[in-house]
Write a protein that binds this DNA or RNA. Structure first.
Lengths: 353, 353
DNA sequence: ATGAAAGCGCTAACAT
DNA sequence: ATGTTAGCGCTTTCAT
């Protein structure tokens, strides 16, 4: 293909308005030291000619690229896409992130990076060198990857770490995992449950621990036992099935189970069905994530709603603020989720003993 | 934030390898006129220094941007995201498009553009001027928007039109809508259905017409009637409900209905339930799209699977080929979908009459 | 087969 | 408050 040069450049605008390139540049970037009338004149030329700055050129001259890079785990994301289970984490990130970016004239570029890989660093370096983004959004498990965090910190690129709350580099944001687990537990306690089991997520994600903390904390408040009621899964359906069996096969099984992912909750529902346990009559189930699928099960699942879009949106805001010279917040930003009650939770059956 | 310049540039590589910038450039772009040993030496330096070309600089000097812009309808996409019905069209596009882009060293940028808007053109122009993509992927209804198609054609940017098959500018790709409708119809005919209703999609999408053609064509082959069996919807649940009632309230209602979207099929299922019609005993239903939700209904819906990922992947391939000097195919590329039989279709009840 | 020079569109730094 | 100059990192001419 032939050379495709910019049709309308800053030069054209400058010539049309009869000013220097610099003045046009100042107007574009909303910088000081331009008289209002001058600004107006330049803006008129911009509008007239339909001029839009080339982000390549802007980036070249050392300024912003107006690009924010959102990075997700490759393996897991592709598995979700191919699995077609309706997991809409990526969609929600785009919803929150892209729209917020657009508000500020930024663009979001979505990338996949392997975590389990000796060349994570090379991959990320390449993406940064190629795109030179003004900011990066990390999601679990990348958010806690010291290689990635270290690299970004060293390169002085503002970056958000969704699902992290330690004070290391970057802007930490959580979806209030502990609080959500507390609310889920409270919901069950309020219904009258005493034995509430918990299926944890993969320990690779620090949020898995926080959710356990929330459950344990709330149980402690009520003086309820947690011993033998915690099983570790890894977010997958298969791990959820194993965990659910372990909980329900015990001598004194729980009357309710909180699963740290929708897939594990689905598995729990299936295990209950196998065992002939009525849900919610004999077993209540609460899931985490609230992906679309949980509304279509029988019964529909009560779920912790993860505010993914809102969190992505906040991440963008904070990155842009940081990039504009503000400093990052010292405290992690906590975006609170919700609990959506559906048919899978009810008062426990009365036990005659 | 301080100036963030490229840490390793072509200069560093040239110096390290002891060659000119030009030679390095040739190696990067895999151009001729470099001795193998020279190439090897340069490549060694590139690897050693971890050099990655800056896309901005490449674009600046008039070459490729390695960016492919995928454009979806803003209103509809945001509605899908917010609706959280598990519609995974975007995910499938990313799956097919991003991975194929990555194979060629390209990146896919996803953008939302309003169709119903007097400033479509301005929006698109801005995106192109800002990003200077090497190619654009259009999806319905943009694919048939003459303003957009004209603009892209005029700017000589290679672009794919998913869901279009006319010979206008650009690379046309369809998901074989007509063939899919034929297969769906055939599936029902083979089960013994004679009266097969069809709920069409919005006429704004030309694929709506092709699906009707497929259904009518296959019905004609069998000598089956179509009069009074076609109702127009607009892909939404609400329109599907209206259409289904219209079909089922008639004197001689169909024993099977093909709906041109999952949402309309879902609505049809609900209407059947209201009317006390057993599915599939008294009414068979086939849907289009095969989004995740159709597996969770009772019964699960037999659906036409739209090969969205595959189509996006092909679009990327064709764009890159075109961009590399090949010319666009003269015939529309047709990516064939599949029919996934599930519980919503069965032989019709025997009518005693 | 290789290199040198010019320039892409824009902004930072330095004038004025 | 505005203009001028010198690059940014790379690819294109155009030499050699």
């Amino acid at each position: 293909m032939g050379r495709r040069r910019q049709s309308v450049t800053i030069k054209h605008v400058a010539a049309d308005a009869g000013v220097s390139l610099q003045t046009v540049s100042r107007v574009i970037n909303d910088e000081p030291n331009v008289r209002p009338e001058m600004k107006e004149r330049v803006q008129a030329s911009i509008d007239k000619l339909g001029y839009v700055p080339s982000i390549a050129a802007q980036r070249m001259s050392g300024s912003r690229s107006y690009l924010i890079l959102a990075i997700n785990d490759r393996e897991r994301t592709i598995a979700d896409w191919q699995g077609r289970q309706g997991v809409d984490w990526v969609d929600q990130m785009l919803l929150g992130g892209m729209l917020k970016c657009a508000e500020y004239g930024y663009r979001m570029i979505f990338e996949l990076v392997d975590t389990h890989n000796d060349h994570v660093e090379r991959e990320l370096r390449a993406a940064i060198a190629a795109l030179q983004p003004d900011g990066v959004i990390l999601t679990p498990p990348h958010s806690d990857n010291p290689l990635i965090v270290g690299l970004l910190d060293q390169q002085k690129i503002p970056f958000a770490r969704i699902g992290s709350r330690d004070g290391a580099a970057g802007i930490a944001l959580t979806m209030d995992d502990e609080g959500s687990a507390r609310r889920a537990t409270r919901h069950l306690v309020d219904l009258g449950h005493k034995r509430i089991g918990f299926i944890a997520g993969s320990p690779e994600y620090s949020l898995s621990r926080w959710r356990i903390d929330g459950w344990e904390g709330e149980m402690a408040v009520e003086g309820l036992p947690t011993a033998g009621l915690l099983v570790e899964g890894d977010f997958t359906y298969a791990s959820g099935a194993v965990a659910a069996r372990q909980l329900l096969d015990g001598a004194n099984p729980p009357t309710a189970i909180i699963a740290s992912s929708d897939q594990m909750a689905l598995a729990t529902l299936e295990v209950a069905r196998e065992k002939g346990l009525d849900v919610p009559g004999q077993l209540s189930i609460v899931s985490f994530d609230n992906t679309p699928v949980v509304r279509f099960t029988q019964p529909a699942l009560t779920a912790v709603d993860q505010p993914v879009a809102e969190t992505a949106s906040r991440a963008v805001e904070l990155i842009i603020a940081a990039q504009r010279g503000g400093q990052r917040p010292t405290e992690p930003t906590r975006v609170q989720g919700g609990l959506v009650p559906r048919g899978s939770t009810a008062a426990p059956a009365v036990v005659h003993g």
